[in-house]
Design a protein around this nucleic acid. Structure first.
Length: 868
RNA sequence: GCCUCUGUGGCGGAAUGGUAGACGCGGCAGACUCAAAAUCUGUUGCUCGCAAGGGCGUGGGGGUUCGAGUCCCUCCAGGGGCACCA
């Protein structure tokens, strides 16, 4: 037995180099082989990898290596989601140029990822901030414009008046700018939009076909798209004196059945009619300002009170000419949805009810449980909402009385359609995708504004529009706008003086097609169709749930948009999706409440102290690793101390991959101990087992046969587990096999059968663990006397003759309680099992003389004796 | 508020409606050692019992079934998503 300890610091770089020299992971288009494209969400180059990356990329790597061993032509690329605000923040705070900051970070992170031993095709690497990448993004955008997928429209942004800059929603904290602390205003700005809402229906229905996506993600997307079926119809309006005014008021509703319960109409504060009335109605301007200000404040914490402003207009009820509904501007009606106007039915909508109570409007119930006396049914402070299984009918509703809600909806829809008053309408919650960002570190939007010709796309021959490098961050606002010359250009159409668009793209655009670019990263066009046809779709995409909606929905839209413009030929980019859980860790803090890094904490009896100061440390909750709470463990330090294989093994062990995993010191040490144990085991096997290539001797029986069975069962189980991404279970199989090997090695005087079984088990053991601990596996493979590499080794196949046994253990129950077990030949007929079971002493005792009513036998599994 | 997922030993977690707790962590005991670490062996859901052998047990309650961690109803707790979408 070897007494040497396994030293990952020595072996890991060696094997990484061996793989690189062999170009083992470079993928080449080969139509004769089945392909497998495994992709993990590419990282933002923050400068250091974190444990979340380790977990994400290890999972992908296990799949890539496993599929490779199965004979697939595997594509497993890596790149950088390199545009974004942190680079600009670094520029502002530390005076580093975003470009050098980004590329330095990439270099650092690339090194860290390489030390993990990932089977990545680095020859396909790119960063989204490379002009050679984003030029294609610009080209496609120009094509999107031509295809009618792009729109320029006015939209509200969060404006920081001190920093003179536009803020993302997450930069607005309690209504104030995160940096300046100034009260954030809403401003209207002309911006670029991609018309994702054209695909609302399509993106929704196609979710049904994404069968290997997590149900949760599909649901989240479906909710986000938010399809609803309703009606659009118009009210005639009149003024205070009952005189009809020119405008009609169009509203959208999904509860047209409740029309007889209507008691008011409400318009969004941004509704065109409200804007029109503003000058004429004193106080309305202020009301509108108030509503606008509310949008950015902490209203999400406490629901804002329903407020309205009477517009001195009245809507004539379509079926009750004698009823006039007062019209309000209201703070709870959204301009961006439906018509920006509603009718309020307080009895059956909580918001409408709150509003009606505040302004003393009538509350007329029109839906009630079946059999309720309409004159007795009243609504208090809670709106009556019909539940799906409720037996409800319409009341107080003229020709609808007695109908169920669906019947009433249908009746109203018919009546309105025939009368030409309105029509059925499907609405979606999903809005168009605003892609303009008033930032420097992003892909320039390739359009030119000309005084004469309007907006003109940059001709493709002039692409890319590159970012100027001589920019300064010493004053607030967009450096592109401040740049002395960059924006000055000539109009491609008329040749006159013109101005470049100074907005850049939302970085979600960069990540909406990178997976396609990986198929042909050097191509002179965005995507080489032949390459994409072979490699796409991504067979297995892996990332965090936090991207369940935006990134994945945008990518699905982009695939369609690219297909429409001839850049791709598929609709769904990710055939299978897996969302892995986070890495969490206990939090530590001092008595003063300061967070302390786990690395600075030492155990002291039951509690913890600060490793340097000796100060008492208290533990807090187990939370997602975050810099702010300092509960982070640096992967580099872990790799330095234990090696990459230990880190990889740990993040795969124990916890199912979709759940959050708790990082613990004990766990890592356990993983490291196992690495050492494998090392000793393999050395022992090499010494005691048969030599490599030895044929199976005849007549293997007893313990040797059992070991062979265990081996082949492990192969079978591992194959199933990895195929289903059940890494934690796969690891348990490896432990089981290790335990079996260790037990077998205890014995002395090993016969040829056992020596063969040890060799077979040992080699299978190494190959099975290789996807998870690739370096250790290579090193062990050598110890086992091989000159080849494990990465070139095919995945083992289980011999069916060894995975089935001719005897089975059958559990014996009496009245559903387990009383005994019995070994019987496999496939024994039920009658014989019954007889054998009834003869058992334990069964007789449990029956205690009671007569047997029947015996339930499930072949090879269980027998249940039921007594009277 | 609506929509969702999850509740199993001290802990992470296994378990096609068929022997609950695989495997790991931790604990306990032993071997080796002058000793410790490392390693190896055994043991480890709770409980009654000297033992043989019982009883209880998958968040609570109910149901379906010969049999429920698993299916159905209901309640409770925790996590996630959306949050004035009419």
């Amino acid at each position: 037995m070897s007494t040497e300890r396994y030293n990952p610091r020595d072996t890991e770089p060696r094997w990484q180099q061996a793989w690189t020299e062999k170009r083992a992971f470079e993928a080449r288009h080969d139509p004769s082989r089945p392909k497998y494209y495994v992709l993990e969400m590419f990282p933002y180059p923050s400068g250091r990898i974190h444990m979340g990356h380790v977990r994400n990329y290890t999972m992908g790597d296990v799949l890539a290596r496993y599929r490779r061993a199965l004979g697939y032509n595997v594509l497993h690329p890596m790149g950088w989601d390199a545009f974004g605000m942190p680079a600009e923040n670094a520029a502002i705070e530390r005076g580093v140029h975003p470009k050098s900051w980004t590329y330095d970070n990439i270099a650092a992170m690339r090194g860290q990822l390489k030390s993990l031993g990932l089977s990545l095709d680095w020859s396909r690497e790119f960063a989204t901030c490379d002009p050679s990448y984003y030029r294609h993004e610009q080209e496609m955008f120009v094509d999107f414009i031509k295809a009618g997928l792009v729109e320029r429209k006015v939209s509200m942004v969060n404006w920081d008046p001190v920093d003179q800059t536009v803020l993302a929603n997450e930069q607005v904290i309690d209504g104030r700018g995160w940096r300046s602390g100034a009260l954030v205003e809403k401003r209207e700005l002309a911006q670029w939009f991609l018309k994702i809402s054209d695909y609302s229906e399509e993106l929704l229905t196609a979710l049904d076909d994404l069968k290997t996506w997590p149900e949760k993600v599909r649901l989240m997307q479906a909710n986000w798209i938010g399809r609803s079926e309703g009606m659009r119809f118009a009210f005639t309006l009149e003024d205070d004196n009952g005189k009809q005014v020119g405008d009609k008021l169009t509203v959208y509703t999904t509860r047209h059945d409740t029309i007889f319960g209507a008691s008011f109409c409400a318009l969004s504060a941004d509704h065109p009619l409200v804007r029109e009335l503003e000058p004429a109605l004193p106080g309305l301007a202020e009301f509108r300002r108030e509503v606008a200000a509310l949008g950015t404040s902490e209203e999400s914490i406490e629901r804002a009170e329903k407020k309205g402003f009477p517009l001195k207009l009245y809507a004539r009820h379509p079926f009750r000419p004698e009823v006039r509904l007062p019209v309000y501007a209201a703070n709870f009606v959204l301009m961006g949805y439906g018509e920006g106007a509603i009718f309020g039915c307080p009895a059956h909508d909580q918001r409408d009810l709150d509003f009606a109570r505040k302004y003393g409007l009538p509350v007329i119930p029109v839906v009630a449980p079946k059999g309720t006396d309409p004159s007795q049914f009243a609504v208090g402070d809670e709106a009556f909402l019909e539940k799906e299984d409720d037996q409800t009918v319409l009341i107080n509703s003229d020709f609808l009385d007695g109908m169920t809600v669906p019947e009433a909806k249908e009746a109203i829809a018919r009546r309105m359609e025939t009368a030409g008053m309105g029509e059925r309408k499907v609405n979606f919650r999903l809005r168009d995708w605003g892609v303009s960002r008033q930032r420097y570190w992003g892909c320039p939007i390739p359009v030119i504004h000309c005084g004469k010709c309007g907006v003109v796309p940059v001709p493709k021959k002039d692409l890319p529009v590159t970012l100027p490098e001589d920019v300064t961050f010493d004053r607030p606002g967009n450096p592109l706008l401040h740049h002395p010359t960059w924006k000055d250009t000539t109009c491609p159409s008329c040749g006159g003086k013109a101005r470049r668009e100074t907005d850049t793209f939302d970085t979600f655009i960069d990540s909406s097609w990178y997976f396609a670019r990986f198929c042909s990263p050097q191509a002179p066009i965005p995507v080489d169709r032949a390459e994409a046809k072979y490699w796409m779709p991504v067979d297995q995409y892996i990332g965090g749930v936090e991207h369940a909606i935006l990134h994945l929905l945008y990518s699905r839209f982009y695939a369609r948009a690219m297909t429409l413009t001839g850049h791709l030929d598929l609709k769904e980019p990710f055939a299978s999706l897996f969302t892995q859980g986070m890495v969490v860790h206990e939090t530590f803090r001092t008595a003063a409440g300061e967070w302390v890094l786990p690395a600075e904490v030492a155990r002291a009896g039951e509690g913890y102290v600060h490793a340097r100061t000796g100060e008492k440390i208290t533990t807090g909750g187990i939370e997602k690793m975050s810099k702010s709470k300092k509960n982070v463990v640096d992967p580099e330090a872990i790799i330095e101390r234990y090696g990459a294989d230990t880190a990889r093994w740990f993040v795969l062990s124990d916890t199912p991959p979709e759940r959050d995993i708790e990082w613990t010191e004990n766990g890592v040490e356990g993983a490291f101990r196992f690495v050492q144990r494998v090392w000793r085991l393999v050395a022992d096997i090499q010494q005691k087992g048969a030599s490599p290539g030895t044929k199976a001797p005849a007549g293997i029986a007893g313990d040797a046969l059992e070991l062979r069975r265990t081996t082949h069962l492990a192969v079978q189980a591992m194959t199933e587990d990895l195929g289903a991404l059940r890494f934690n279970r796969g690891i348990a199989r490896i432990y089981e096999l290790a335990n079996a090997l260790q037990a077998a090695l205890q014995k002395n005087d090993l016969d040829d059968g056992m020596r063969f079984a040890l060799r077979e088990a040992g080699e299978a053991f190494v190959v099975l663990m290789a996807p998870m601990m690739p370096h250790l596996a290579e090193e062990c493979w050598q110890v086992l006397g091989h000159k080849t590499l494990v990465v070139d080794r095919p995945w083992p196949k289980a011999d069916p003759a060894l995975t089935v046994s001719d005897e089975v253990t059958i559990a014996v129950q009496v009245n559903g309680k387990r009383r005994d077990e019995i070994r019987l030949p496999k496939g024994l007929p039920n009658a014989k099992v019954e007889a054998a079971v009834l003869a058992l002493d334990n069964v007789k005792r449990a029956l205690d003389g009671k007569p047997v009513r029947k015996v339930v036998v499930v072949m090879d599994r269980i027998a249940n004796v039921v007594s009277g």
